[in-house]
Amino acid sequence: MKLIAFGIAAAMSLAAPAFAYDGTNCRAPGNCWEPKPDYPERVEGSEYDPQHDPAELSKQGESLAAMDNRNAWRIWHAAQTGTFEYDVAKIPGYEEGATPPAQ
């Protein structure tokens, strides 16, 4: 029995470091992540480096800016004319990316 118990304990103590991240060791409030044993602290340059393309990462922000701009023209046009027009190409004076004239 003792031997078995010792064996299990030994196995666990060996295995334990490989399963260390339990989320309670914080480097700062709200920042408690730790790398799992044998996994990198930073993935950049490691075998798990996602190698994100900055051009891809910026597409969402660009898309939001373009949508917000089109919306601004729609609102401007509705305020000017009292009618709503979704298709910005039909809005007189519309210029892609330009700010609508002051009301």
Binding site: A28, P29, N31, R42
Partner: peptide
Amino acid sequence: NPHYGQFNLGLETWEGDAWKI
């Protein structure tokens, strides 16, 4: 509840620009 975390964590709890996606 400052222990929940407060400022700059939207960047500090990510590596690099991964927060953008």
